[in-house]
């Protein structure tokens, strides 16, 4: 079995993995980081989105071995020193979640949207959510949360990347 070294949420992990192990399986089953979810088996729902090298990817469509030497951030690594990321805060403030299952992938995708677009308009946010399904919210409050967080992330002038 190949051995891989991945930095997950700032912590370096070295582990042997079967090549067919998906990144999401590695995160959930080996590292017990169960915040990243699996909502489909056809690479469409986005519940499994994490950041690899600072970009949002589907951890269900990425092999763990492909991530050797990469930096991975999951929902568990988004808050820093107990302080929620503005996107997490915005989802709570604007009721952008109900059952919570799509939420980790949705938030990771949302951070990536703002990282790339800065201050996107509503249409852009809706289009950019193409790869994330939510069955509860009708997206209304998710869109609202992302727009609000984008403003805060801009206003704060802070480094907006999670990594």
């Amino acid at each position: 079995m190949p051995s891989i070294t991945i930095t997950v949420n700032g912590r370096e992990v070295t582990s042997e993995v079967e090549p067919r192990t998906l990144l999401v399986e590695f995160l959930r089953e080996q590292l017990r980081l169960t915040g990243t979810h699996v909502g489909c088996d056809t690479s469409q729902c986005g519940a499994c989105v994490v950041h690899v090298g600072g970009r949002a990817v589907k951890s269900c469509t990425t092999l763990a071995v492909q991530c050797d030497q990469a930096e991975v951030t999951t929902i568990e690594g988004l808050a820093r020193d107990g302080v929620l990321h503005p996107m997490q805060e915005a989802f709570r403030e604007h009721h952008g979640l109900q059952c919570g299952y799509c939420t980790p992938g949705m938030i990771m995708a949302a951070v990536d949207i703002v990282n790339r677009h800065g201050m996107p308009d509503e249409k852009t946010v809706r289009e950019e959510l193409d790869g994330n399904l939510c069955r509860c919210t009708g997206y209304h409050n998710i869109v609202k949360a992302i727009l609000a967080a984008a403003e805060k992330m801009q206003g704060a002038g802070q480094p907006i990347a999670a990594e």
Binding site: T34, G35, H37, E93, L97, Y101, I107
Partner: peptide
């Protein structure tokens, strides 16, 4: 009122059946 359950969901600390082993 903001939801009290949200903190665990937005930080990846939800506890769904498949998270239990």
């Amino acid at each position: 009122v903001q939801r009290v359950e949200d903190r665990r969901f937005i930080t990846g600390k939800g506890n769904y059946t498949d998270d239990i082993n």
